[in-house]
Each structure stands twice: as structure tokens, then as C-alpha cells.
Simulated assay, not measured.
Amino acid sequence: MGARQREISVSEFFTKNRHLLGFDNPRKALLTCVKEAVDNALDACEEAGILPDVVIKVEVAANGEAAPPASQATRFRITVTDNGPGIVRQQIPPIFAKLLYGSKFHRLRQSRGQQGIGISAAGMYGQLTTGKPVVIVSRTSPRAPAHYFEVQIDTKKNEPRILEKKQIAWEAPRGTQVTLEVEGRYQKGRASVDEYVEQTIIANPHVKLTYLTPEGESKAYRRTFEQLPASPREIKPHPYGIELGMLLRMLQDTTHHTLSGFLSADFSRVSPNVADGICKSAGLSPRARPRDVHGQAAESLYKAIQATKIMAPPTNCLSPIGEPAILSGLYQQIKGEF
């Protein structure tokens, strides 16, 4: 029995449990794939300080046969193109073909995604349902070459498998284009791709978006707000938001040499006076080495933190849409009297 035991990669796990990633049924899967690609495009543009120009194209994948009507099709090709900063060549395969690979997970900062699963999971879904790779074209500047990749996930190792890579001529001066071929179902109405696009424009009036529907219709949404949202600020964890296990890990990982310094520097809203008070309540020396605090001492520290009155975390780390921006989005999309 023991000889049969082996490690399971995260890719293998999600291959058999794809419903956990939003691929419950073909209709939802199509929406999830579009959303993940668009989220990546918007985040890339905003982090680089670029007003986003995004093109979404969803078309029926005929595969050499006569294309059925969009409402009856079961396979679609999704292409999302942005004018963002592009991706350096070495990073393209892991970003699109490795689960739990990303830049946001270890940052406590407002963002559309965090785990590094989204776009690579969409690619894995396409790989499972159609056998097709993810196709990426990206360029970082007008002077740099455009890199073309076809990648799939090696689900046993959770590593990218590069099927093709080359430099190509591409008309865009910079940006990224990702193409997925997936099984799905196109249907208008609630929780559809069409509704998602309309809601995205309301919430992001600084985006210029073109949507090419599976029925061949082109919908252009102009930019109605010429300012990017304020960039969200990274924040330290609040003491009330952690559990004992996380506290133990932070005690081992900290670069500070005293317990009081660790509490006041690695947490939000903990001043040196509050840190000293927590140490006193826990019966620990403020000058104790954080790495020496474990077992019962760590549990006492955790209970002291929870019993100490600490200010709520600041809200200036958030980036709300703002009244002028949301109104400009509403005026464009919703016909009514305001």
C-alpha cells in the first residue's frame, strides 16, 4: 500500500477538481476564461500607469468544419489584447502555464487577483477540453521584438511545456495578446460574457474596450474617464486578522531582533507603546528574540494580541472607483434619468 503513495501536484489536483476554479459548466467556463484574461490586462495596464485599451474577441472555433451558430457552438476561441507594458520573454511561460505563479500573493494590496491561478487555470481548462495550447504574443516596447509562445501545463510537474517560441512581426508597439480555445456555451442574459463586459465598463470607465461577439457583432465602448484609479497601497497585516499559525511563521521570518520591534514594525496599527503593552500582558520581555517565542509563549502572545485594544486598519490603502468615475460609467451604459 505504501508503495502506491506519491506526491500530487497542484495542477493534477485542479485537473480533477476544476469546479473549484469556476469551471463548473460550459457557460460559466466561457465567462471565467474571458474574465481572467481581462483582469490580467487591466491590472497590467494600471500598474504600469497606462490607460487601458482592451480588445476582447470571442469566436466560434470551427476546426475545419462549417461553423455552427454561436448559440449552438460548443467550442470557442477567446483572444484578449491589451496595450499594457508587455511581459519579458522569460516570464511568459510560467505566467500562463504554471499554477500558483504570480506577483500578488505575498502582497497585502488591493488587486483583481492574488493567487496566481486565474489565467493559467483558464489555459489548463482549454488544454483539458480541446487539447489546444495557450498562444501568447507580447512586446515590451516598440524597439523590442514581439515574442510568440505556445504553451501548455505539464500537470504532473506543474511546469510550463513550451511547444513553440519565436519572434514575430506584430503591429502593436507594446502589449500582450493571449488566445485560448475552450469548450463553452454562449448565451446572453445574466452571468453572460455580454453582461460581464457591460459591468466592466461601468466599474472601469477609464478603459477603452472593443468587444467582438461570437455572433460577429462589434461593440465599441469609449473611454469616458481620462484618469487612472489611484494606485492601491500595500499594507501590513492587522493583528486581529491573523491566526496562531501565521503568528508563529511571522516570528520565525522576521528580520527584527526584539519582540517589541517585531510587533510594531511587522503589523499595522501597533505602536511601540502598544507593542510593549502586548508583551507585558503576555508575560514576555519586549527585548526577547522573536525566534525564541514558540509553544506556550507564542500562544500567550497571541491571546494578549486579541485581548489588546488596537485601532482598526487604515482605509487609505484602498482604491475606490470614486463618484465622478462611477457616474461616467453609469451614464454611458445605463439609459435613465440621473
Rank of each mutant, 00 (worst) to 15 (best):
M1S: 10
G2F: 09
A3W: 13
Q5S: 11
R6N: 12
S11A: 13
F13W: 15
H19S: 09
L21M: 13
D24C: 07
A29I: 07
A29S: 14
L31A: 04
T32H: 08
A37V: 02
V38L: 14
V38A: 12
N40V: 00
A41P: 01
A48P: 06
I50W: 02
D53W: 09
V55K: 09
K57F: 07
A62M: 03
A66K: 15
P69Y: 10
A70G: 13
A70H: 13
S71E: 15
A73N: 04
T74P: 00
T74S: 15
I78G: 01
V80S: 08
G84V: 02
I92Q: 08
L100W: 12
S103M: 13
S103L: 08
S103T: 14
R109D: 01
Q110S: 09
S111C: 01
I119H: 09
S120K: 05
G123D: 09
Y125A: 04
G126I: 03
T129A: 09
T130F: 04
V135C: 12
I136L: 06
A146C: 11
V151F: 05
V151I: 12
V151T: 04
D154K: 06
T155M: 05
T155D: 11
L163K: 02
L163C: 07
K165P: 03
E171Q: 14
A172C: 02
G175E: 00
T176F: 00
T176C: 00
L180R: 01
G184R: 11
Q187A: 10
G189N: 13
A191W: 10
Y196K: 07
I202T: 06
I202D: 05
P205S: 03
T210W: 04
T213F: 12
E215N: 10
G216W: 11
S218P: 05
K219F: 02
Y221A: 04
Q227M: 02
A230I: 03
I235Q: 15
K236H: 00
H238G: 07
P239M: 06
I242V: 15
E243F: 09
L244H: 04
L248K: 14
L248G: 01
R249S: 05
D253I: 00
H256Y: 13
T258E: 09
A265W: 02
S268A: 14
R269V: 12
V270R: 14
R289V: 08
P290C: 00
V293A: 04
H294K: 13
A298T: 06
E299T: 03
S300L: 02
K303H: 07
A304M: 01
I305T: 03
K309Q: 14
M311H: 09
A312N: 13
L318V: 04
G322E: 08
E323G: 03
P324C: 14
L330F: 11
L330V: 14
Q333N: 08
